[in-house]
């Protein structure tokens, strides 16, 4: 088990909140409290299916004031690599998983005069802790939440009931779409906008905010990618003097972990930068959000959680 994991935790609640989203609550098996976390934090969940360990990042969705429980919401991706499928089919009340320490790549900017949240689908998850915190701080906030249909809107009813004046729901099945131009127009000076959802939605919201004169410093987004399958390749570890084969459906980071090579990580989605690794030889297909364009062009570092070799080999300086 990676040193990145700290606690074994047990499922104490598991609810299918929509046909595709399952909501889990965990407590530590040793009965101790979890680490405190700030709104917007994620954790990596490690689940062992008997042959290997899936590690997926999930936003914490429970109250940041309850240290005895962590809560996450998992969207089923049946075409994905199997982590969410395993969480849906195999993790139930009493199951044990490994859980890492929380890390926040998407914090609330507390001095903002107003917080404007734009969520799409399962992108609602980080905002569950946001809203909890903003409500406690008596902050001015507004949520714009787009869902495919009401049945698939995780937490939609609960949010609408609790915050009828702040929550705006857009149900695409009813033909109601969020209009980012309207949402971003006429917002008071000092507003910060936070966007989480599908890639295209995030890109659209960021582009429109920029066109409407929002400075980058007032615009925040979170989007983790999942590793995509690619061609298999061989990785040579220069310092450890060994060769590892990376299979088509596993990431470079996973291949290294399966060979008991420890790499620090946090988001496993190309955003946090923890797993940055030096490359000595081989062409890279970069897929992360972390490295600068210059770093990507230099070809001497890679984010192994998400990026792969372009050809059939890579040499890493580890």
């Amino acid at each position: 088990m990676s040193t990145n994991f700290s606690h074994t935790a047990r499922v104490i609640r598991a609810d299918q909140v929509t046909p595709l989203i399952k909501h889990f609550s965990f407590e530590r098996v040793d009965g101790k409290p979890f680490s405190p976390f700030s709104a917007g934090s994620h954790v990596v969940i490690g689940m062992n299916n008997g042959t290997n360990t899936h590690k997926n990042p999930y936003s914490l969705v429970g109250s940041s004031n309850n240290f005895m429980e962590y809560e996450i919401a998992v969207r089923l991706d049946s075409t994905g690599r199997g982590g969410s499928l395993f969480m849906h089919n195999n993790i139930e009340l009493g199951s044990e998983i490994e859980i890492g320490n929380p890390y926040n790549l998407f914090p609330v900017y507390k001095p903002a005069k107003k917080h404007l949240m734009i969520a799409g689908g399962v992108g609602i998850t980080p905002f569950m802790t946001y809203i909890d915190e903003m409500n406690l701080m008596h902050s001015n906030f507004e949520l714009h939440y787009s869902v495919r249909d009401f049945e698939n809107g995780a937490f939609a009813k609960e949010l609408q009931d609790k915050y009828p004046n702040q929550v705006n729901l857009y149900i695409q099945a009813n033909g109601v779409m969020a209009n980012f131009n309207e949402i971003l127009d006429n917002q008071p000076l000092g507003t910060h906008v936070y966007v989480c959802g599908p890639q295209q939605m995030v890109a659209d919201a960021l582009r429109i905010a920029d066109e409407m004169g929002w400075p980058n410093s007032s615009v925040h987004s979170e989007e983790f990618k999942a590793p995509e399958p690619g061609n298999p390749f061989t990785v040579t570890l220069a310092k450890s003097d060994c060769k590892i084969n990376v299979r088509s459906r596993e990431s470079l980071l996973e291949a290294l972990e399966n060979a008991n090579i420890e790499i620090p990580y946090s988001c496993r989605g190309g955003a946090c930068g923890f797993c940055k690794t030096e490359v000595i030889d081989g062409e890279i297909t970069h897929r992360d959000y972390f490295l600068t364009d210059a770093e990507k062009a230099s070809g001497n570092c890679i984010m192994p959680c998400i990026s792969r070799a372009q050809g059939d080999h890579l040499t890493l300086n580890i």
Binding site: L184, Q187, P188, L189, M212, G213, W214
Partner: peptide, 10 residues
């Protein structure tokens, strides 16, 4: 004046 202004102000 500022508190009556909107995002996009320079």
């Amino acid at each position: 004046t500022l508190s009556n202004s909107q995002m996009g102000l320079r």
